[in-house]
């Protein structure tokens, strides 16, 4: 990671992608709930005011209006903060978007601890769990702006509902900006431990792998942005060759990527699966970096988990 490193928040990539897509598809509509500046849908709203609908501070109504627009033949992108998209309106999403398999793309920003100073009320740490539990729902957690843009574009080709989890903070661009639904990618090779990460934790996993390599341990790093459907082939191959897995996510330890990986491997290739995640606690106000350190989401936390995983493997 030299000094030419590019940084971009995934929500900024979203704003950019929407404007581009708006020009290509006139059946694309966008909804927001009074957060269009923060979610970056405002860029689309400025460009295509006729196809932008502000629901006001009414997230449940927004989700169902999106469903109605989808019924009228539109592809609807609905955005607000992750906590409200998946918390306040979960049942609307479950019953009125996912159950009838409507093409509504829920693009939620401000997920995780990196919301920062707004504190626990605004830091969604359960959203992957509750979205993942809905049948047929795609759950995508891009690692950087480039991948976010690709995922947003790819979501148009996914029939039915999609949840894309974006962040507030700027993150280093580390992927080549490709996304295929249901596919993860291997960013570093190694056969000692496989680190399976998503979102902002992918860059941290790469950092951990660099340091482990200095200690003579080779980590495979997998960007599992496709949390659901999971890239099972990639996972199976990694588990077979490494025989120990560490997962890393900016989410509660219950129900997220770590759970998804453990559920799959437990049934198909039982190896130790050690999660690096928030340990079933709420967040709090603070600087994003300080929060990540406080809640144990640093590269050295991943390193420690890798070491333990190798010991467990024996």
């Amino acid at each position: 990671m030299g000094d030419t490193q590019v940084f971009e928040a995934t929500r900024d990539a979203y704003g950019r992608a929407l404007v581009e897509l708006g020009a290509l598809r006139d059946d694309l509509v966008v909804l927001d709930a009074d957060l269009s500046g923060s979610t970056r849908t405002k860029k689309f709203a400025d460009q295509y005011p006729d196809r932008f609908f502000n629901a006001g501070i009414a997230e449940q109504n927004m989700m169902n209006m999106a469903a109605g627009l989808a019924l009228a033949g539109k592809v609807a992108f609905a955005s607000t903060f992750a906590i409200f998209a998946t918390g306040r309106a979960w049942e609307q999403v479950r019953n009125t978007i996912a159950y009838p398999r409507l093409p509504v793309k829920i693009i939620a920003t401000h997920a995780g601890l990196t919301v920062g100073a707004d504190g626990a009320s605004h830091q969604a740490l359960e959203d992957i769990a509750v979205m993942r539990a809905i049948p047929g729902m795609h759950v995508i957690v891009p690692a950087d702006g480039a991948e976010a843009e690709a995922a947003i574009k790819a979501s148009l080709d996914i029939e039915g509902p999609v949840y894309i989890r974006l962040g507030r903070a700027k993150v280093p661009t580390i992927t080549d900006g490709e996304f295929v639904p249901g596919r993860g990618s291997t960013l570093a090779n190694g056969d000692d431990v496989a680190i399976v990460a998503c979102g902002i934790m992918v860059a941290r996993a790469l950092e951990a792998a660099d340091r482990m390599r200095e200690r003579g341990i080779n980590c495979r790093v997998i960007n599992m942005s496709a949390v659901k459907p999971l890239d099972e082939d990639l996972l199976l191959r990694a588990a077979r060759s490494c025989e120990a897995v560490v997962t890393a996510e900016e989410h509660n330890v219950i129900g997220g990527l770590g759970s998804a990986v453990a559920e799959f491997l437990g049934a198909n290739c039982p190896v130790p699966v050690l999660p690096v995640a928030v340990k079933d606690r709420f967040g709090q106000s603070g600087d994003p970096d300080a929060l990540l350190e406080y809640y144990g989401l640093m590269p050295n936390d991943i390193e420690a988990a890798c070491v333990r995983a190798m010991q467990m493997r024996g």
């Binding site: 609908f53 209006m65 469903a67 109605g68 627009l69 009228a72 033949g73 009125t96």
Partner: peptide, 14 residues
Amino acid sequence: LSIAVGLALGGQLD
């Protein structure tokens, strides 16, 4: 009613 509002918006748009 929210679904109906979304549908009607779609109809209005078209």
